[in-house]
């Protein structure tokens, strides 16, 4: 299972830094690694969500100039929080996972904006958040629909073996 997860993660990192950058939707790119991170956390538990979140953060930092520590910290937190929903109702349904992804996407964007703003927080300075936070979350959710079905098939097959 771990090997497959690593392969998927590497494949997503390659896709994110090559294919995805050429197809921006409304100026934004879907965050494939974040989508995968939330899927893993909601499928298993918060412990695995935390560890795989760290791995996802490291993979995401390869695709960007951002500080790797921020990426690892934010993704680990997202994995942890998403994994905490494991006991919730209908969490095995992809639609529930997508709803969790929507909120995690918003939280992730806010966390990044807060961590990278050097001169303090104010609504004026957070134009990025004000204008685009929902759009990014919606784009992530749209991409999650086919991806979650794909991940589910793969992991169901692996677990069946």
């Amino acid at each position: 299972m771990q090997l497959v997860t690593w392969i998927i993660l590497i494949a997503l990192a390659v896709l994110q830094s090559s294919f995805i950058i050429h197809i921006p939707f409304f100026q934004f790119k879907p965050e494939l690694i974040l989508i995968f991170c939330v899927y893993l956390a909601t499928r298993y538990d918060w412990v695995r969500g935390f560890w795989w979140g760290m791995a996802c953060g490291a993979a995401m930092s390869i695709c960007s100039i951002g500080d790797p520590r921020f990426f690892i910290l934010v993704f680990a937190s997202i994995g942890f929080v998403s994994g905490s929903f494991r006991g919730a109702l209908f969490v095995d349904h992809n639609s529930t996972k997508i709803i969790i992804l929507f909120f995690m996407s918003i939280a992730g964007t806010m966390a990044f904006a807060l961590l990278t703003q050097q001169s303090g927080f104010s609504f004026f300075e957070m134009a990025f958040i004000k204008k685009y936070i929902i759009k990014i979350a919606v784009i992530n959710c749209l991409f999650a629909v086919p991806l979650y079905s794909f991940f589910q098939k793969i992991y169901n097959k692996i677990e069946a073996r």
Partner: peptide, 11 residues
Amino acid sequence: IGRDATNWNKS
């Protein structure tokens, strides 16, 4: 030859 893959950073 390449661009940043995330939405948070511009490079």
